[in-house]
Design a protein around this nucleic acid. Structure first.
Lengths: 208, 208
DNA sequence: GTTTGTGAAACGATTCACAGCT
DNA sequence: AGCTGTGAATCGTTTCACAAAC
């Protein structure tokens, strides 16, 4: 593993392939071709094969890929052979939506704590998790290290929260606040910015 | 306007530049250089100038760009000179989070209706919007056309909802369901798939 | 005959570098 | 002197096409 400099787009497609393999498995398929994976995901068979070839050769010529075996390989490549601890900062609408969505746990991501600084929210129960005082974030992260921090605060608070997460040793951040977080080199941020998505749709609508 | 084939990445950066210009304006700057915009957004000044150059020349050599004028130009380019009507299908956690987040309205996107097929949810009030029976979706879309449909249903229901949106004339879809929607050529879909984002973080964590 | 794995070719996006305007 | 606008060069990604494996 650990092949150098794989494009972000390749990694995203690998996740998709994994999803499709699960579907194929459910439908009882034991083998799958690059063409089958491609057409399911709106790409080309050459793209599928090239993506996989960065990590090894997992197929049999003339036959395709074993669904189960390829699934295992992709999970390995994506680092999904273990569970991840996720802390959520911000118990607003999106924070609570995140915590209450069960799909993450099923995929190996455990939401282990949710923090907010609003006294009216602290102590509330969200799907088995108690909203904790954001003032405790740093201390509790030191005691129970987490892998991923989800920033779900208003824009103004996001950078400060990110700084604290980073200071506590978090190196992977999922950011829902509509700002570009400034983080050190060794920290990875994925930002989900809904306004950006809507404006991209607006651009398409406006330009035919 | 309506220059052909602009890269998705360029459009996303234009949205970001617009955000930064609003910040600069707030700080009282009347003029801004490509370098200032770039450093604010983690890109390069050449990238900024190239992005803008696809649409015209908005700056003054030796001086930079007028903040207000460039803002207007970007809003024009992105099609933000009008308001958009957005219907939300699915009144679950994320649907409600969307509807209750005020930020969209402020940016020109009006959430005009929310639908669900669960009788327990129909009739509930969410931030001034009544959850409507999903069975009425097609009829009501015909009566009051919307511009964008947000699909916030469970995975199983998403494709069916998308089909109905498309049949009712919607050509832009924001998809939160963790599936790849199949839509005709003329329809644009932007998918927000949180599991994909988490797995991209997992990949980075696993590969140092 | 089918389908993979992969160099090579084609394409697309970013960066360079500088002429031209203010 | 300072900063834009943009061709040209570079870099990265996708597609082609075919030999090798089954």
């Amino acid at each position: 593993m650990a092949v150098r400099k794989i494009a972000e787009s390749t990694v995203r497609r690998l996740s998709l392939y994994l999803r499709f393999l699960e579907e194929f498995e459910l439908q009882g398929a034991s083998t799958v071709s690059s063409e089958a994976l491609a057409s399911r995901g709106g790409t080309t068979s050459a793209q599928v094969r090239k993506d996989l070839s960065f990590f090894g050769s997992f197929g049999k010529r003339g036959l395709g890929y074993q669904v189960g075996a390829l699934k295992t390989q992709l999970r390995e490549i994506l680092g999904l052979g273990r569970r991840y601890r996720v802390v959520v900062v911000g118990a607003g609408k999106i924070g609570s939506a995140l915590v209450q969505y069960g799909g993450f746990r099923a995929r190996g991501f455990d939401l282990v704590a949710i923090y907010d600084k609003d006294p009216k929210k602290i102590g509330r129960q969200w799907d088995g998790l108690t909203v904790r005082d954001a003032a405790l974030l740093d201390k509790e992260l030191t005691e129970h290290q987490a892998d991923i921090g989800a920033v779900v605060t208003p824009a103004e608070a996001a950078q400060g929260v990110a700084d604290r997460l980073v200071a506590s040793g978090i190196t992977a951040i999922l950011n829902f606040a509509p700002v570009q977080l400034q983080v050190p080199e060794h920290v990875t941020v994925k930002t989900v910015n809904l306004v950006l998505e809507l404006e991209a749709l607006s651009y398409v609508l406006a330009n035919r």
